[in-house]
């Protein structure tokens, strides 16, 4: 009888023709009509509607530059919950409140076939304390990421991580509310705009419930690009390391930490490395929240006469489909 029970197992067992679709298997007819070895076509899919097929948490979050990743670091994971057979998109808003500064970032991202990610984000940065109170800086970031090898989740039997190459094109929108100061060039930056290139390797160690990410970034960006690119100290760019370690507490909740080097190219800025400790929550495939304690290092210490580390809160909300 129905013993051709195809599947013996595994995740995702068998898929019979749509014609036989039914939700009450108890009354499943035993058919002997399908003895043929001809392939069974899958039900027609609506390619317009995202499949939302990835497992929770594996869609990643939106990092500070709008790329799929953690809080400060882009991962090799392609943003959204679309699998190789589909796509997914999302929008996010992130609020970072530091001791003397505030950073608001928002943007959108789309992941196509779990292969290509395109993102756009805006940074609005404001001095909320210290000498330059009221000063505003803004920039746009366009991101492109391509997965080049491996699968972070399925590849449990290999050491190869998921690898992705990414680029972030950043366009400065000027400095406001600062009198004569309107461009980061006046602070010593060589350029207002710039491009970051990175290689990310991400692996989920399921047996240990761990996520590990290492990113190597080539950048000239001063303070994420908010203070322009290159400078008097270094003008050729630097290779910086970034890393994320996450521990999955449940299917929907992870905690961890991140570290991101910054290039320190401007003489007037004592730019320090950034790190955070985060809690990430994905109650379903449409919403995720990341809350973190963040330290962006010192920002413009000499100019603001505040050279302590800029610590504070990071809260990011992402909605997706």
């Amino acid at each position: 009888m129905a013993v051709r029970s195809t599947v013996l197992l595994s995740l995702a067992a068998a898929f019979a023709p749509l014609a036989q679709a039914q939700t009450t298997p108890s009354s499943a007819p035993v058919t002997s009509s399908s003895k043929s070895d001809a392939p069974i076509p899958n039900p027609p899919r609506n390619l317009i509607v995202p499949d939302r097929g990835k497992l929770l948490l594996t869609g990643g979050f939106s990092d500070v530059d709008g790329a799929g990743g953690g809080g400060l670091v882009p991962w090799a994971l392609i943003t959204g919950y679309g699998t190789e057979d589909s796509y997914g998109f999302n929008g996010h808003y992130t609020q970072v409140n530091l001791r003397e500064f505030e950073l608001r970032t928002y943007g959108v991202g789309i992941g196509i076939a779990d292969r290509v990610e395109i993102s756009a984000a805006r940074h609005d940065f404001e001095v909320t304390g210290a000498a330059l109170e009221g000063l505003e800086v803004s920039q746009d970031i366009f991101g492109l990421k391509v997965r080049v090898a491996g699968d972070a989740v399925y590849g449990q039997d290999t050491w190869l991580p998921q690898l992705a190459l990414g680029a972030e094109f950043k366009r400065h929108r000027g400095i406001g509310n600062a009198g004569e100061l309107t461009s980061p060039r006046q602070l010593g930056a060589t350029d207002e705009d710039g491009v970051d290139l990175y290689l990310s390797g991400t692996k989920v160690f399921l047996a240990q419930s761990l996520l590990l990410n290492v990113t190597l970034r080539h950048t000239k960006a001063n303070q994420f690009g908010l203070l322009g690119y290159g400078g008097d100290v270094n003008d050729s760019g630097k290779f910086n390391l970034e890393t994320t370690v996450g521990y999955m507490l449940t299917r929907k909740l992870a905690l961890g930490g991140e570290y991101r080097q910054k290039p320190r190219s401007l003489g007037v800025d004592d730019e320090g490395d950034a790190w955070d400790l985060f809690v990430a929550w994905a109650p379903n495939r449409h919403v995720s929240v990341v809350a973190a304690y963040v330290n962006l290092g010192s920002i413009l210490g000499p100019a603001t006469t505040v050279d302590r580390d800029q610590t504070g809160s990071y809260l990011s909300v992402q909605f997706g489909y």
């Binding site: 599947v7 392939p39 899958n42 499949d51 939302r52």
Partner: peptide
């Protein structure tokens, strides 16, 4: 066992 099926990633 999955020979005749077009299992998708979503289904897996």
């Amino acid at each position: 066992s999955h020979k005749k099926l077009n299992t998708t990633n979503e289904q897996f």
